[in-house]
Design a protein around this nucleic acid. Sequence first.
RNA 1: GGUCCCGUAGCUCAGUUGGAUAGAGCAACAGCCUUCUAAGCUGUGGGUCGUUGGUUCGAGUCCAACCGGGAUCGCCA
Length: 590
Amino acid sequence: MTPEAALRALIIDTLSKDFQIETSAADLRIERTNPDFPGDFTLVVFPLVKALKRSPEQCAELVGEALCKRNDLVASFNVVKGFLNLELAGSYWVSLLQTMGANALSLLGSKPRNTKVMVEYSSPNTNKPLHLGHVRNNLLGWSVAEILKADGYEVIKANLINDRGIHICKSMIAWERFGNGETPESSGMKGDHLVGKYYVAFDAQFRAEVAELVAAGIEKEAAEKQAPILLAAQDMLRRWEQGDEAVLKLWKTMNSWVYAGFESSYSRLGVDFDRYYYESNTYTLGKDIIAEGLEKGVFYRKPDGSVWIDLREDGLDEKLVLRSDGTSVYMTQDIGTAELKYAEYGIDRSVYVVGNEQDYHFKVLRLIMQKLGRPYADGIFHLSYGMVDLPSGKMKSREGTVVDADDLMQEMHDTARRKTEELGKTEGMTGEALSGLYEMLGMAALKFFMLKVDPQKRMLFNPQESIDFQGDTGPFIQYTYARIRSMLRQTQAPDTCPAILPNEAERAVIRQLAMLPDALRAASDGYDPSPLAHWSLQMARQFNRFYNEFPVLKEADEASRAFRLFLANAVAENLRNTLGLLGIAVPEKM
RNA sequence: GGUCCCGUAGCUCAGUUGGAUAGAGCAACAGCCUUCUAAGCUGUGGGUCGUUGGUUCGAGUCCAACCGGGAUCGCCA
């Protein structure tokens, strides 16, 4: 049990037995005590004033005294205005440390959730390499999946690959026209970058053709519809759908290049998937459900044959779910894949990590599934995240003004190397270990930067300034870990924790450790890794404060030294585990 | 125009279901390495929490209106 939960239970019991006041856990206001006052937790007594018929100060005094008497959890108290500051007993903190040891999450107890969650993330298009926005998506999705696992859910990570459509044909047609048979092997280019190059080439050609048509006196809008290369791409899509062998062959070849490229980016990012879905397989799904919905009267057909749903009563608009020619739209496919996911795994919840520009789409999807009475409908959750902006403005992959994911990762690696070399603390490390360290530090800086922010907010990314290695960063936490490991290489931590009375700095460290379960719960409930990132920062800061003031290895008193080693080891292990949920590895030395 | 998201220090961000004098980091300035890793620690300066009302013992947090930024409302995905 966490200290707060223990205290809450004690207060409820005391209020009931000594004051005949029945309260529920939710009614009590318990907070961390303001650092300016002595105490660990604070009970806000204003809500009790009416029931006790006393002034706030008197209420606080009465309750404080009763709590101290009841058992040895609360050692002392003080009252400031209507706030009852409670100090828990030193012996309690030590026994708590002994209980949680290297795994503070054990305070949660193990309860099987028997709940299956699918987290779909990444979902790239196969016409261009991953960029900064995908990086945020991938890190979020992977981390949320790991967090849910740590909180007792059964998790399936899924990737729905958009391998079909006009955008793919654009790359294909440009490669046919301008490629001269270029391959990743012949060019030495990563496959996804090679294909992306032709996507950009398509756009350049397209714009040139449009300009030509406009010069010939055609309206811009019309020109954009009749540019020859666009017509060629559209024709290719038709041939693709008809199963034209030459088109399919080219499609498969270019896709295989892209997949090889993606695999290498995913692997470097440290993300993985349990199940891949391909839009080329799923794009016709969902039509049966449309038919079912028509029968049930959830959908209706317009005279031209197109099928719609009217969501105006739900505050939305009418929405097309099937084209007049009977082909699927985006929504049709998503209805179908939702059904497929459920059929395959019997999932209870389905998390979609997709940018916030699709808020509307997922609101509609969820509503449709609810109206169709699907058992998984309420479990659909759109993990919506904000765009990543650059100082120069929006990223446009067509125009090639993007921060490429591979370039970014390499840049992080190089920056980490430069920084490490400046500090010159890596004596005795070999070339391979060093490069592994740079990678670890660079990726930590990148991942922490992305994950410490509330997903919902759009974020500004300044390649020159954003990513730092000092202050609120991944490397700062890694550094704290490495320092502790350095001590533990010299003297091992004891298996059991000596029962001494901790000083204020030590208590603060234990208190922070004990807050990890709350951070995990917040992260899991909110599908948001940032509470764990902030916990880690706070943990590292708290430990560094202690470390700066008190000796560990050089502590003369043997019991105290053993206690501090045990404490330091607990901090290191919990930091390592928590950063692991963010996809961040920790070095033994840096 | 309808709907949704965001607005907190010069910059990047925290701020639990309303609680004490609104917190970190970066940047600026001043200290701390003959002692366990200074990628660290300590201190100083920096705020009409977009604006105006409302709800109450109490509002950055809840409600309303407005201002500013963004997204979305395609037989694109």
